[in-house]
Structure formats: C-alpha cells, structure tokens
Design a binder for these strands. Sequence first.
RNA 1: GCCCUCGUAGCUCAGUGGACAGAGCAGCGGACUUCUAAUCCGCGGGUCGCAGGUUCGAAUCCUGCCGAGGGCGCCA
Length: 554
Amino acid sequence: MIRDEFASLVARALTDAQAAGDLPAFAAPEVELQHPQRPEHGDYSANLPLRIQSLVRMRAVEIATALQRHLPSHEALAEARVAPPGFLNLYLAPGWVASQAAAIARDGERFATSDRGAGARVQVEYVSANPTGPLHVGNGRGAAIGSTLANVLRAWGYNVEEEYYINDAGTQVAIFARTLYARYQQTFGRDAPIPENGYPGEYVAQVARRIRDEEGDRYLQAEGDEPDPRLGERGIELMLEEIRRDLEAIGVRYSNWYSERTLQAEGGPYHTVLAQMRERGHVVEREGAVWFASSEIGEEKDNVLIRSDGVPTYFATDIAYHFDKLVTRRFDRSLDIWGADHQGHVSRLKAAMRALDASPDGLDVVLYQLVTLKRGDRVVPLSKRAGELVTLADVVEEVGADATRFFFLLPSAGAAMDFDLDLAKRRSEENPVYYVQYAHARIRGILDRAGEAGLSAAGADATLLTHDAEQTLVRRLLLLPEVIETVVGELAPHHLPHYAQDLAQAFHVFYTQCRVVDEQEPELSRARLLLLEATRVVLARTLGLMSISAPDRM
RNA sequence: GCCCUCGUAGCUCAGUGGACAGAGCAGCGGACUUCUAAUCCGCGGGUCGCAGGUUCGAAUCCUGCCGAGGGCGCCA
C-alpha cells in the first residue's frame, strides 16, 4: 500500500543523506507515517526529524530539509515540504490518485486483500455461551467482534476457523437439567418446584412444553426419582438449536462446534493434560482438591483444577481445550473473544500453557467490556438467571440484524457500551448503518440510470477525476488497506464502522457536487462511472467484512 | 484491601507521543424543476475526571487521588 511505499522512500532518503554526509551515521528508528489532521499538511507526514533531533544534535527543520533533498522520486509523490517544527509532509500526485480509481475498480473483490497472513492457521473462538439459556445482548457483542475479526483475518491471508465451544458439562448444565425436569413435570400437573439456584426464566418451561408435545412422557420418572439424564441432553440440544438460529440471524456461522464433554472422554485432552501437568510437577493436592501450583510460576495464586467433590473446574477443562487447539490441532494462533468478566482467567490460562510448553504466545484474548442494555433511562437487567430478560433475538427483531451488528462494532472492545433500545428503534432511519448502506444503494441507482442512458465506464479516462470531491473520495478509498492492517494488528474491529462512515460521507459529498450521468459530457461521465464502481466495491467490501448487507436499493 | 478496564461536546463514541482535539445524534438556520432529501451546507457547543511529573511536544507515557464497571483458591 502507498503508505508503506512512502515510508520506504523516507527511509531511503535517510540512508542516502547519511551516505552523502548530510546527516551523521546512527541507528535510525523505523519510519512511521501518519495522516495529518489538516489537509494543507499533506497526505502523509513523517515526524522522524523531530524524533531523532536529540540523537543527531541538529535542528529538526534541518534534518527534514536534508531528507527532502535526498527523497527519491515516485509516480505517486507530487512533492515533499518541510514544515516547522520539523515535519516532512508528503503530497500525493492528483494524477496518480485519479488513476487509482481505475486500479481499484479493476481489482474488484480482490482490493484490500493481502497475503500477509501467509496462510497461518488461526482459530477464532467467540460467544461460546452456556447452552442453558438464550443468547443475551452481551453475547451479541462478542459475536459481532469475533465474526468481524475472523472476516478481516481471512482477508489478510490467514487460514481462519471459527469455533463455538459448548459448555455442555459441569454445574450449570446439571442445574439446567434439574430445572428442566421440574418444568417438564409441571406440564404433567405435578407440583414440582424449581430447584434452588435453578433457572427461573420462562424459556425453560417453553422447552419443557416442546419436549412434552414432541416426545410425550418418555422422560417422566416415578415421583421423587432422579431425572432421566437424556432429558437434560435433549434440552441442551434444543437450546443450542436456538442459539445457532439466533447467531445465523446476525450472519454468524461457525466452522466447528466443539463439545466440552468430548474433552473429558476416556483418553481425551483433559486426561492427557492433567497427566502432563502432574508429570511436570505443577499439581498439588490440598484440602481435598487438586490444584494447579501456578503461584510457583509467577501467578498470584494457585487455582483449583479438580474440586473436592471430584468434578473438574471450568479452568481445568479450558486448559485442556486450549492445549487441544494449540498442540493437538496445531493452530498457529488461538484467538478468544471473552467478556470482561473473564479477565482474571487470562493470565492463569497463559500460565497453564507455559507450564505445558503449549506456545502461550499463540494465545490471544480480546476482552470486551459488558453491554448495558437500556430502554430510555431504565437499565434492563441482562442476567440469564433473572426472570425477565431481553435476548439477542429480541434486539435483532427490534433493531434489525445490520444495525445490531453495526452498533456492537462501533465502540472499541475495551469500552463499556450502552445499548439504548428506544434510541436505536426511534432513530432507526437515522442510524449510521443506513447512512452507509444508502451510499451503496445510491451508487446502484446511478449505475442503473447510466445503463439506461447507454453509458458505461468502458474506456474511461481516469485522469479527468480532478474535482476536489473526486480526489477526496479516491483518497478515502485508498485507506481501506490501512484500516484493515490496523484492525488485524490491534485486533480492534471498531475501526471498520468508523471508516465506513467516513467513506460514505465522502461519497455523499461527491454525489451532491458532481453529476455523474450527463449526456453532454460523455467522457467525464465515463470517468465518474469508473469512480462509482471503485467506490461501490470498497463500500461493499467494508460492509461485507462486518457481515452487513450492501443493499441495491433502499 | 489488591488486580484489570474505562473516564474526551448535552447524549453515544473515535482519536492513545505530534501541528489549531473529531464524528454521529440532539439543538438552531439554510438547500429538492436536476442520477434516491435515509442526502448536502452552515452555526453554536470541550478545565480531554483532578493534581503533579517525564518530553522539543501529553487527551495519549509515569505517579497519586476521585468516579464507573469487572475480577480476586473449589461458578462458568
């Protein structure tokens, strides 16, 4: 991308200036270019002179001038100017900018793809909510972040798999099964109370009714007997069916659903890992429980692996799960998207990977802060255990899948977010996502109109794109690769919806100022149609990376 | 008590070592005989939580304090 090419120009200017004796020899830091806020400061700006002025013992302006003198020429570079207190500002050549409209239109769907990932195998695991209830709003945020990162990594040449880890073992599942059995008995008129700590939500009763309707009383035991374990399993299946459907409704599809139970199978990862940890001396027994002696390898505390009742903890199975990813299944990277309530889990899981020599550097965790759902001023409780709850499906139904995803992606993962349903609903027509989608629909409309007028971009002369609005738009298009690189590097998908809005704005301004279909000016029309095609491609790609639709009309 | 994250315009949020701090929404005022007005143009709005420090330069880094959320050996 052009930023990298310009950066290497500056780096070469530096070494050339040193060779010529205009600058003293020293080990220079890597050249980083930024976009100045003000257009008069150019398209790219090098602050290298300011950063090295104390090393070189020259004034930054003098360093910048030396760099300017040795800067190699480049077809995309119009000029370089020295600006106080010591910036070297680079200006794109308008002719080159215009030519990029043709290049982008030609690249089409391949624009802003890269092979930098070099086929490295990355597994992105996200949502992975307990199958003991419907997905809530917080899960939706994880889904939007995880699936978008997966899309972006794929575009950057990584070999990506998306996985949902099913917590179908352990305490919560057992409680769910007991609750379900109580509800199931109630459908047959028995006075079966919901167990203490059980799930009070109405949805469990709905599952119970469905099972009764479809399978009758086959799971009914004699009064007072233990529930049939198959009932709980059936309930989990039905919950997973619902979860899968809710996720598909916002464009999320997994390559793999991984069951926690299979981890614990005879000879499975759980037993392998526990044996290895014992062998390596990382396990101690105390107070009837089995512990990971993590305090001996730099953690604050030891952590329980097997509870005194013999049941493995979530932590223990999660170690096995990640060992399975990184060692057995040989993923180069395991990228986990977790809610901030799992924050304390990160460092001890990495410690466990270290203890097992299981490439802890391959484990990345993106933590997203929790979502507060609001209706106006009223905070809506999200707890799965509260009786009343607003599910992800409810939100999607109210706001729509595209707007839901866009809203979830907008704030950075590290910032807690308020999701005001009333606001999202009331302003649905002024939603930023519609602003972006409308740009795409408008382009389609113009392309249709051009077709009717017998005009196309074939044989267009891109150099006619000299209008300010045209130049600004192409410059905006050229940013997508930089945005993607940032998203990949920082694992921060929120840059995409912000870019999408900037891009849409540049288009809407162009639309207002520049007439495209004009039979009096067929040459200019052709050039502008080319620009439209390039813009359409980039808009569609940006939306596609967020799994948001790019409509042809609105 | 300790640890993590956050605190930027009335609201929701970008910006995390550069040049005069930005967007959307909300408010006010304009623009449709012209490819979709779900649009565009203009105006007002900020002690960047507070106080120190580092730096040529701090919303950004460091320290302390205040506030919000989350976490802290047998929930997941």
